[in-house]
Design a protein around this nucleic acid. Structure first.
Length: 483
DNA sequence: ATGTAC
């Protein structure tokens, strides 16, 4: 296990495990943590996993971990690793099983006071329009040909069907559609799972949350995003469902032969990978992008369903019930990006697993209205605690591969949480605090209890203190829908 | 996260 004395303090929010810590490391590990969060992270294998990632072929200094880090499959959730496109590898475990798990935020002009009497009806309607739970099927039953179109078009598939607006797409990472997605690199089994699950929420930590915009920290950015104190907003946290999960499973299996073929030495089998510039690596990236596009489309369809719920509940009761898109951003993704390394541009594959892209001001990738400010970052908290809107900075480009945190981060395993927490009690407590809850299962609710997570405010203070994101708004949940 | 085990 890594010990505290092996970790060098740079400042109150930034620490380092030098590349000399273990002889197989090719890069250092940079940690964005307070001492308290660092001590918490010594309890699991997340730092060992970050050190392992620092041995990957072509990895560029440094591997980064965020304050919400915890142990994952082969690679920490809350980790970022950039590998050179020229001679580096891509690793499915460093992107995650839920490919393009991400968050979408929609904002309204509905004042909380006006909405309050209808919130229980709203929770019921959202729960009815957005199917949730493990293995749940939705209203979109796609043929394999149609699913292939979703893989290629992402959220643009929804636009063609009148289920999205141009503004929705413009305010989505990559316009909701990654290029070079190739459904022919996706297994039949993945497609069978995916074709009935489009437009569903899933389970685990995926949720819909109705929030009160409680406090604005950056009025200029908040105004550009249409966020006004006292109004309602809707947060959607979801990914690529069984489709992305099956694709990751398939490639974790497939790429084992590539590890052998290219003679890659790995400290952990779970870091299975292939050269980016190889048939195996290209196939995985093409399939990963298909899953990413599926997830963009999925969140779009959930947003559309949520708008129907808002209309049903609020039409004729409040003046303007429209939900406008603020942004949609992934936190489990591999992206080919150009970053300045030692003053020179370098093309890298940035693996972000439980880490959110947080581009600073000036990037052409951002919609025009956000370009002078930086990219919106959406940070869902644990159930019943705050969620946050942040914005990317110059510092995040220089220090963390244009990335920041993604959420609260687990402290209790699912198993432990289920053992220690009663779902029914938690639901009653949340309801007492004025949060309307709809949950598919009480054990599932217990797994996602706030006690199972770190304090999201502390995580946000850390990234803000380190300068790798700036606070824009704090959101307080008033209704939660979970699988 | 996940048809929570092929």
């Amino acid at each position: 296990m890594v010990r505290l004395q092996d970790i060098r303090k740079i400042n109150d929010y930034e620490w380092e495990i030098p590349a000399t810590y273990r002889e197989d490391m090719r890069a250092s590990v940079r940690l964005f943590v307070t001492r308290r969060l660092l001590e918490a992270s010594l309890e699991d294998l997340s730092l060992e996993q970050a050190i392992n990632a620092a041995t990957l072929p072509g990895v560029v200094d440094p591997v980064v971990v965020m304050p919400d880090m915890h142990q994952g499959y082969g690679f920490p959730i809350g980790g970022v690793a950039a590998t050179r496109v020229s001679d580096g590898v891509v690793s499915p475990g460093a992107i995650g099983y839920d490919i393009n798990c991400g968050v979408r935020l929609l904002a309204s002009q509905i004042p909380y006071e006006q909405a309050e009497p209808y919130l229980d009806d709203l929770a019921t309607a959202l729960n009815r329009y957005c199917p949730s739970g493990v293995g749940t099927e939705g209203e979109y039953r796609l043929s394999h040909e149609e699913l292939d179109q979703v893989c290629r078009l992402g959220a643009r598939w929804a636009l063609k069907r009148g289920l999205a607006s141009e503004e929705d797409l413009r305010r989505t990472e990559e316009g909701g559609c990654l290029e070079d997605a190739d459904p022919t690199r996706v297994s039949h089994k993945a497609k069978e799972r995916g074709r009935t699950q489009l437009g569903t929420l899933g389970a685990g930590n995926h949720f819909l949350e109705v929030d009160l915009i409680e406090q604005i920290f950056d009025p200029e950015a908040a105004q550009a995003m249409g966020l006004q104190e006292g109004n309602l907003a809707l947060l959607i946290h979801c990914g690529s469902r069984g489709f992305g999960h099956q694709i990751c499973t398939d490639y974790v299996q497939d790429l084992q032969s590539a590890v052998k073929k290219y003679g890659i030495r790995l400290p952990d089998r779970e870091l299975v990978c292939a050269p980016i510039d190889s048939p195996e690596g290209r196939n995985y990236l093409a399939a990963m992008r298909a899953a990413a596009n599926y997830a963009f489309c999925n969140r779009q369809l959930l947003a559309h369903a949520a708008r129907r719920a808002f209309e049903e509940v609020f039409a004729g009761k409040v003046r303007n019930w429209h939900l406008h898109q603020v942004y949609d951003i992934a936190h489990n993704m591999g992206k080919i990006e150009t970053h300045l390394v030692n003053g020179k541009p370098l093309k890298v594959c940035v693996h972000r697993k439980g880490a959110t892209r947080a581009f600073g001001p000036g990037f052409t990738e951002l919609p025009e209205e956000y370009r002078p400010l930086g990219q919106p970052v959406l940070v869902p908290g644990s159930m019943g605690t705050a969620s946050w809107v942040l914005i990317g900075t110059e510092t995040s480009m220089q220090r963390s591969w244009g990335s920041t945190c993604h959420g609260a981060g687990r402290v209790l395993s699912r198993h432990k949480a289920k053992k220690e927490i009663r779902g029914e009690r938690l639901r009653d407590e949340l309801e007492r605090r004025g949060i309307h809850v709809r949950a598919g299962s009480m054990s599932g609710l217990a797994e996602e209890a706030p006690q199972a997570y770190k304090d999201v405010d502390e995580v946000v203070e850390t990234v803000a203190g380190a300068g790798i994101a700036r606070k824009v708004a704090r959101l307080r949940p008033v209704a939660v829908i979970k699988g």
